[in-house]
Nucleic acid binder design. Structure first.
Length: 339
DNA sequence: ATCCAGGTTGCCA
DNA sequence: TGGCAACATGGA
């Protein structure tokens, strides 16, 4: 039985998976379905414990015992969250974010999967990125099935060990299909047209070009773990479709560089509104420099908390009953335009 | 319909 | 350096 229980204090599964750092987890009433690398996984949280079921393990039985470790590592349960949060600066803005994002962890994603997904993320809403990821996976990844419900809900014939009253077609309805992310060489083998078919738009060219560089061995993503932050960033930025923001996301979400501080439109808006309300022109570089210095060694965590806090609509300076209108406003909460 | 989205790139002064 | 437009797509 590929079912385990993991003690996970100081962890909020839903916030973690729904904070825009990873895009392929599907929420159902029975928990989250997704993949961790090649492994199909279903995760449910109740209180401090995680119930994890995985699909068929295409590995030796000795590796089976590694499952708890794989899951705990993916969700970064070893991060000292209290200490990390305590290292944030003390101001009303980050304090509010820290309060509302309790248990949110920066997970450890597979490098290629993270890089490829964020190349697809430019000028896309979080929901769209999820759609693109899903299409890439369905069309070019591998399908893995995982039991939708626990077997105890079904009727067993104790002598044969078989399910009763469940024919084959019905049994298949009990399975949930998830898809692994296609490896770089698979993407590299495609035509740009095939990628555009996954709604990538102009990003298709970048993803394809980067996939070919990775697949050729010219860019060794795993080896780059040994580089210092600055060198890693410049290596990532050499890849087509990767600029400062995407590089910082990949550093943070796949290379454990907790200092990396991605600045997207949401974070830029938040920083300007909350920390520089009167500044007229603040260059991207100055904002980046400020953020890295001010938020410190776990700036990436602070950034993720600010991002999620802002996006979940708690961070608005003015209560707004019309969420859509609030989202439409360039600087939510502001009534006067700042020229 | 119009605006915006976890940006990057090339070109301009 | 810093501003600016082009680049595709879909949801609100």
């Amino acid at each position: 039985m590929n079912m385990i229980k993991i003690v996970a204090p100081d962890f909020d599964l839903e916030k973690t998976l729904d904070s825009g750092q990873v895009f392929h987890w599907k929420k159902t009433n029975k928990g989250f379905f997704g993949t961790i690398g090649q492994l199909a996984v279903r995760v449910e949280q109740s209180g401090n414990s995680l119930k994890v079921r995985c699909g068929p393990i295409p590995l030796s039985t000795s590796k089976r015992h590694a499952l708890p470790g794989v899951v705990a590592r993916y969700f970064a349960l070893d991060h000292p969250l209290a200490a990390i949060c305590a290292s944030f600066p003390d101001d009303p803005v980050i304090n509010a974010a820290r309060e509302s994002c309790r248990g949110l962890r920066i997970i450890r994603q597979p490098k290629w999967e993270c890089l490829a997904t964020f190349i697809c993320s430019s000028m896309k809403q979080v929901a769209h990125i999820g759609q693109i990821s899903q299409k890439l996976r369905e069309r070019f990844g591998e399908q893995r099935k995982i039991r939708l419900r626990h077997a105890l809900h079904e009727t067993y014939d104790g002598s044969s060990g078989r399910l009763l009253n469940v024919n084959k077609s019905r049994r298949s309805q009990l399975d949930y299909a998830v898809y692994t992310f296609p490896p770089a060489d698979r993407i590299a083998s495609l035509r740009e047209r095939a990628l555009r078919g996954c709604a990538l738009g102009y990003r298709a060219k970048n993803l394809l070009a980067t996939a070919r560089i990775v697949a050729s061995g010219e860019a060794k993503l795993e080896d780059w773990s040994a580089l210092c932050d600055a060198d890693l960033r410049s290596k990532l930025c050499e890849l087509p479709g990767v600029g400062a923001k995407v590089a910082n996301c990949v550093m943070l979400f796949a290379y454990e560089r907790l200092r990396a501080f991605p600045i997207d439109v949401w974070i830029e808006r938040t920083l300007k509104e909350k920390y520089f309300p009167h500044a007229r022109h603040l260059s991207a570089l100055r904002l980046q420099t400020f953020a890295e210095k001010y938020f410190g060694e776990h700036g990436g965590y602070a950034q993720q908390y600010l991002f999620h806090h802002a996006r979940t609509n708690h961070g608005r300076s003015v209560r707004c009953t019309d969420r859509a209108a609030a989202l439409r406003r360039p600087y939510p909460g502001m009534t006067k335009s700042h020229g």
